[in-house]
Amino acid sequence: MARFLVRRILGSAATLLGVLVAVFLLLSAAPGDPARLATGGAPGRRAASSEALEAFRAVHGLDRPLPARLATWLGAAARLDLGRSFRDGRPVTRRIAETLPATLTVNGLALLLAAGLAVPLGVWGARHPGGTADRVSGLLLDALFSLPSFALGLLLLLLFSVQLRWTPVFADPSLGLRGIALPALTLALVALAPIARVTRRAVGEALSSPSALSGRARGERPREETMRALRRAAPAFTGLCAALVPQLVAGSVLVERVFGLPGTGQLLADSVFSRDLPMVLGLTLVSGVAVVVSTLAADAAAAVADPRIVDGEGT
């Protein structure tokens, strides 16, 4: 088990490095001059002088060759210095620290809500496949899933903030639960369908497996049977986790925009569009760590549920 974990952690570090290098190269290769964009340049506008642009490039090391810049950044990042934003010159870590709590809270709440609703729905569906409830919930979830998140968000906003006046129009984490209920609900509703579906399928398969049959033959009660099935379904959740967690950190630009939530999603979007490379790399690092850690945790959970995975790894 220890060897399995060490190997996985090393692999994760390699993954992170790969992501950072890929983001760096991709964004550097994309056309668009960070100096021009950071100084607010637009065609036809009175622009920053060419000396100012040169000075900007010198300050941020943009005049150096790509590999050297990458090496410098990685070296500094290893010491937890993520550099300074091109746009306002402030440390990247500070800006992330300002936006991350709001995003984490909203998305964490959304994930809890989604899991709390979707897993029971999935289990119910698996235990009563083809029933009216199963089919109705399936249709409903599909419908929710097909709605663009910003449209869903606007609908909720119109209902709860404008018609009923229960929640503020703009998300405000300082108001507590009421301030973030709507963005969290929006994200949760969008995430319901995939979670419920994976649960339903995985539990369904576990229920029809020989071990479940033998359990039933032993007179196992439905609750125990379901718990065992859920445990057996653990590997299926690994992928889901890896798919849902990036959003936890990187946020959702669209939902954050609709509710005016100052989170990392908007920060990332603004940074990408203005080619604010240090900011994008910093956010990539943070979300990458979250993805890697959650995947590791899910894999470990899967390994605990089914030790053969570890054995297979060792051979």
Binding site: G18, V19, A30, A250, A269, T284, S287
Partner: peptide, 26 residues
């Protein structure tokens, strides 16, 4: 397994927004 895990890991930890925006610019 390790090779595939590495590739999926990289893509999944890659912010989709960066990929889409940079892709659209390129």
């Amino acid at each position: 397994d390790r090779a595939v895990l590495f590739a999926t890991g990289v893509v999944q930890a890659f912010p989709a927004l960066v990929l889409v925006a940079a892709g659209a610019a390129l």
